[in-house]
C-alpha cells in the first residue's frame, strides 16, 4: 500500500488580485452544512450547533469559528473554520431537520479594503451601503452570471461563497473589477 500524506488543494490556492484599496484572495478550507429546519426544531438545532440560528431575514450569528447565515425562512448555511465537525454536532439534536454536508461544493473568496463594496458592485446589483447591508448581514444573491452567498464580516470586508466549479469565473470577475483600485 502506498504511503504518504494526502493534502487538500483548494480551487483558488495561490491566487491574488488587488491594489492599494482592495484585495481579493481565497479563504481557507472550511466545513459547511446546508441546513433546512422547521420553526419547531430551531431551538434544539441551535443548541446542538452551539450557535443560535438567526430568524431575522439576512442575519448571521457567530460563535467561535462557527457561523450560521440566514438564507431563507427555513434555510441556513453553516460555515465552520475551526476544528469541529458541524455534522457530528447535529447528530444528537433529536428533532426533525435536514442537513447536507456541502463543505466541498463551495469555496470562498475574501474581498477586503475600502473599495471592497465597489468591486463587488461591478457584478452584484445589491445596495451594499452600511445602512442596507450592515456588518454581519448575509444573503444569497448574484455576481455577474453566477449565484453567490455574500456575507459582510466588517465595514470593508466581505466573504463571497460560491460553488467550486464557478470559482474561476468568480475570481476572474472580481479580479477584472479591481483594475485601477
Amino acid at each position: 500500500m502506498a504511503e504518504g500524506q494526502v493534502t487538500r488543494e483548494l480551487p483558488l490556492d495561490g491566487r491574488f488580485a488587488g491594489g492599494a484599496s482592495v484585495s481579493v484572495r481565497p479563504a481557507g478550507a472550511a466545513r459547511r452544512v446546508s441546513l433546512r429546519v422547521p420553526a419547531e426544531s430551531v431551538a434544539a438545532v441551535s443548541n446542538s450547533l452551539g450557535v443560535e440560528l438567526p430568524t431575522r431575514p439576512g442575519a448571521s450569528a457567530q460563535a467561535g469559528a462557527r457561523a450560521v447565515l440566514w438564507l431563507g425562512p427555513d434555510e441556513w448555511l453553516v460555515i465552520e473554520e475551526g476544528e469541529r465537525y458541524p455534522m457530528a454536532d447535529l447528530e444528537g439534536a433529536g428533532v426533525l431537520f435536514a442537513a447536507v454536508d456541502v463543505s466541498h461544493r463551495n469555496t470562498a473568496i475574501l474581498v477586503t479594503g475600502p473599495a471592497a463594496a465597489d468591486v463587488l458592485n461591478a457584478g452584484c446589483p445589491r445596495d451594499l451601503s452600511l445602512e442596507t447591508f450592515p456588518v454581519s448581514a448575509c444573503s444569497r444573491t448574484v455576481l455577474g452570471k453566477i449565484e453567490i452567498v455574500l456575507w459582510r464580516m466588517a465595514d470593508d470586508a466581505f466573504r463571497v461563497e460560491c460553488w467550486r466549479s464557478f470559482s474561476d469565473y468568480a475570481f476572474d470577475f472580481l479580479k477584472d473589477a479591481t483594475r485601477g483600485q
Partner: peptide, 18 residues
C-alpha cells in the same frame, strides 16, 4: 432595474434575483 419587494426577505431586491 426593477426593485421587487420579497415578502419573505422583507426588503426590496434587484430583479436579477427573481
Amino acid at each position: 432595474m426593477l426593485l421587487i419587494r420579497c415578502p419573505y426577505c422583507e426588503e426590496e431586491r434587484p430583479e436579477l434575483e427573481f
